[in-house]
Nucleic acid binder design. Structure first.
Lengths: 208, 208
DNA sequence: TAGATTGTTAATCGATTAACAATC
DNA sequence: TAGATTGTTAATCGATTAACAATC
């Protein structure tokens, strides 16, 4: 199935919008409503659904609960996703304390750091020595990791967790990493996000 | 000038790669080298440059220092960018302590929160009451804000800072916000980033 | 000069949108 | 039935890539 990243991101947005509509008491939805809620065209919504074989009812729209079930299934939300955080610095520890993941079925079950001062086995999310990561990942069958270590440590940390069996990494370190084929690395680069915003604000300012 | 977001993001990546090459002692670079460093085609590099009227030397490639000067100018890196953070929770306070912005000429000069317990005027980055945000933004001519408040508070906080003159917002709250035309809102949605990663890891697992 | 690289145009590719037959 | 909405195909749009003349 040929799909691009943007399409999958839209599926997540549809899902989130559907939960909001459901909370407001809606039971069914038209492609038009959903398009409005997410900020895309109705054609886009129907096209995205058709890619995944999701069908509604001619004239009747889509039943929200069934639609959510299908989207959740596609997005792998039908089971709890266990995730680890590598790096117990500002970003890493903020992510470990962040509550927003829970409602999405994503649970951060441990953090890892090389600094012995950061180790804390009795934390709600325990912070363990990095050298235990390998056995922890294997024992618990962890596939997803968030990488939030300093630039210079990032490649080495990635190598370690990939070798231990990690299949997907969300990397916050602001540089491009080399990963084996078995591991997907997605990037969150806050510096570049801000730089981008500043660029478009400057452009808007000049043209106004 | 017609430009898309991806093009500007590539300019940031070129810039970052050029600094690394410069640190390694390189003085000039070919479109081919830069393409490799960033993971795009050489055509893409030359095309991006031509959009902004950046030219090199036939056969001679591009002189790194001149290229950096032009890219920095386009990206607005020629002056310090002062930014505020709204929300002193886990994400907000992590961003205020994060040192990675400084080397990019981005300085977080204050944080704001409604919780009196979070106020701290003697912090390296002072945390001030939200009701002071309006006057602070106006007095200091702040144009860029990072929004890191809980979902339910996000729209109200955005309204407040937009009214005070904010022109660009990097929003971490996981919902779509309504902003006036005068203000650009970019979204960082960590839940959706993880969901996306999980999807592609699942797909890879099924097809292997 | 011969070889290599830029800058730009044309071709390709893929994603989005429009249109409309099917149908409830 | 008449009207409205889906599902899908075709058209459009825009971004990326390939090709190559210009030229150093």
């Amino acid at each position: 199935m040929i799909t691009n990243k943007n399409c999958i991101i839209r599926l997540s947005r549809y899902k989130n919008a559907l939960y909001r509509l459901q909370a407001l008491g809606f039971v069914k939805v038209f492609s038009d409503n959903l398009a409005d809620a997410v900020g895309v065209t109705a054609s886009q919504v129907r096209k995205d659904f058709s890619i995944f074989g999701i069908s509604g009812n001619k004239k009747g729209g889509y039943q929200i609960d069934l639609l959510l079930e299908k989207l959740n299934n596609i997005l792998g939300k039908d089971r709890l996703q266990k995730v680890i955080v590598v790096g117990g610095g500002h970003i890493g520890s903020a992510l470990m304390r962040y509550r927003g993941f829970e409602k999405e079925g994503i649970k951060i079950i441990a953090g890892f750091d090389i600094d012995p001062a950061k180790i804390n086995r009795s934390n709600p999310v325990p912070i363990l020595p990095l050298e235990e990561a390998r056995i922890f990942i294997k024992t618990n069958g962890i596939r997803i990791a968030i990488l939030a270590v300093p630039d210079i440590a990032a490649q080495q940390a990635l190598d370690l967790i990939c070798a231990a069996g990690i299949k997907g990494v969300l990397n916050f370190a602001p540089l491009r990493l080399k990963a084996p084929e078995s591991c997907i690395v997605n990037y969150v680069n806050l510096e570049i996000e801000l730089e981008n915003l500043i660029y478009f604000v400057n452009v808007a300012e000049k043209t106004e």
